[in-house]
Write a protein that binds this DNA or RNA. Sequence first.
RNA 1: GCGGACAUGGUGGAAUGGCAGACACGUUGGUCUUAGGAGCCAAUGGGCAACCGUCCGGGUUCGAGUCCCGGUGUCCGCACCA
Length: 803
Amino acid sequence: MERYEPKKIEPKWQKTWLDRGCFRAADRDEGNNQYVLIEFPYPSGVGLHIGHPRPYTGMDVLARARRMQGYNVLFPIGWDAFGLPAENYAIKNNIHPAEVVRQNVEHFRKQIRRLGYSFDDTREVNTTDPAYYKWTQWIFLKMFEKGLAYKANMPVNWCPSCKCVLANEEVIGGLCERCESPAERRDKSQWMLKITEYAQRLLDDLALCDFPARVAAQQKNWIGRSEGAEILFPLAGTEETLRVYTTRPDTLFGATYMVISPEHPLIDRYKGMIRNFAEADAYRKAAARKSDFERTELIKEKTGVRLDGINAVNPATGGEIPVFASDYVLMSYGTGAIMAVPGHDARDWEFARTFGLPIVEVVKGGDVTKEAFTGTETGIMVNSGFLDGLEVDDAKKKITGWLRDKSLGEPVVRFKLRDWVFARQRYWGEPIPIVHCPACGMVPLPEEELPLRLPDVRNYRPTDTGESPLAAITEWVNTTCPKCGAPAKRETDTMPQWAGSSWYFLRYTDPDNPDTLASKEALRRWMPVDWYNGGMEHTTLHLLYSRFWHKFLYDIGVVEQPEPYKKRTSHGFILGSDGTKISKTKNNGMDPDEVVRDYGADTLRLTILFIGDFEKGCQWSDKAIKGCRRFLERVWVTAHEAAERGGSLTPGVEIKLHQTIQKVTEDIEELKFNTAIAAMMSLLSAYEKGCTRGDMRVLLRLLSPFAPHICEELWAAYGEKGLCCEAGWPQYDPAKTVEDTVELAVQINGKLRGTVVVPRGCGGDEAVAAALATERIAAAADGRAPFKSFVVPDKLVNLIFKG
RNA sequence: GCGGACAUGGUGGAAUGGCAGACACGUUGGUCUUAGGAGCCAAUGGGCAACCGUCCGGGUUCGAGUCCCGGUGUCCGCACCA
């Protein structure tokens, strides 16, 4: 018997699978198609890291098992290759980003192949391929046509280090998601996508999606629907009104002042009336200088300035109240102005105390002299005129009705979700196919001119002016207007990295189609994705964006389902051996290449799934490698020994074999890979004196999705026709998963006191009698009959004795 | 502050309300060996024992790691969102 040497057998089978095209999805419709999807990687320069193999291996097990179960499986991979890292690397090393991507993809492809994944090699997509981004641009043009892509002057998040704007979703606690520099606010004319128009549908259709609760909850929070009212406050001495949004219109009588955002246009409009304009202006400028990060850092101290000379009228009380500007009110939410109810809002309460403003209690239940009372469950209105005595909920209804009757306000639904900033001032992204014509304005490129290719240039360094490097390439920028033929300029911003990933799963269904992003037949054949696994970090980014794009494509008749993903799961994050985030410097992780070299791909695959619950986070540990490698060694030896032992099953272990088939089959469907592997280990241990070739034929097929190479080798050594990965999935006989006799747990007054063996399925009385017949139980009973007994058939007897 | 998850041996982790600690690592002992950082076999939650044990305190139940209430702690997401 040869030794088990993964290095010898793994490349051989990888080549065989590839040559034979084992993993190519067939374009046919026999009702058994399955679309299994992983998030396609960004091919970074450092290659595969620990984060990749876990989700890939998990989904590979699923894909391989389903193929063996007779499904026609689409399990593709591609490259999400636009974006900053490739560009930065290119600048640093003076190589064109396209070349960087080509090299990185090559490297990734090799690494991934070494792990034995069953990706369909004929369906790779690459977001930077003009034949691909043609359709990214096409979708953009369709959105432009429908008014969902627009340009607006907006305060945006600017990363001074990346020299680029950031989407709200890319700013984490005021810091750039990528480089952790504090984001600044800048006013810029920006391309935006109107995702807010889809807010309600994105929220409602969560009901159509089989998402983990935490994913659905996070999206729901991010969309942030709230019901409230807009209320108009007349400004004393003017014709104007100040519009506010509130979720607590019931507290209107308690509004003792108003606050507007420092960026609110009212300040300039009433420049003349504001007696302390200089002070207000200074405050405004100071606020503008603060980054969002600083603003949130300074949360404890409320600052602001009173707009002297401006007073608003509380429409309920008719009383005049002062107006302040403060940076605790955001221009980007609601109307940029609030009615302040210090008695019942914690922020207003703090502000009122700082500025010595009156605090009025309008809902009973707290002590507003000590803190704001924000409870809404059982409050009764006080000091509120015609609302007095009402419950909060009723007061809300009454006051909104009253406001509407007097044209002073109306019920309104608001979302936290903002429109999507859809432009980056960088070279390495999809060019936005728009031409700026002095006469015609913004003119979309005609479809037949797509793709609009990135110009091949030397200098793609970003600029400090906030302009894309493309702006410097005059021969590209200068063009003619598609509409009137006059000289015009191209849009020079590019799309963000999220563009290409918002629809890539559609392209897999028909990756080479030159006429459309994917044919109707292909989309009908494969969509929606049956099972999409990915990271939690994409919940409010890619996952939400792609749902939005898909709904848009649904609306214009490109796809036929309102949601792209039938089922979504999320793998847990892998931490280093010290329980902290993996990092090269701490040397607490692992390099997939090294593990493959030292132990083999099969051991790596097994280890990474065995280490813990797939959907929970877990800690990497080198120690787990050993146990998995040992197991494979044992499989190797046992299989060789079994070669001469015939095809029948080992009698005493037959039941366990059937149980294992059941366990592994069911566990794979629930992503419980760790317990599936444990069950197979346990089965192998049960063959104390070795097993037969018949036993092994079953075990090899069960194990093959997890450790495909070794199984393929042993399968071939048995002289089996065909490949193990193409063999049928073992079936279990439910009748054979159970023994004839069972061991019952026997409890006395709920405490375990022994066990008794009885025939399977025996009745309650029989079980009690058998229990009482055992020595230990009989001793405890001391001749007494149990007062009461509980029997769980084939499981347990609980005997209750009095006293 | 809001939303979500979690807490089990020396370690990673198992347990549809029904024998807690499967499986693995580690450790200890044995065996084989010139050798063992290889393999194989055995033991391994605590306690001499009766018994006691799933973060703490209550509760529901014949029975709770699991369900409910109240704490404590850890992690994740969002956050002056009106």
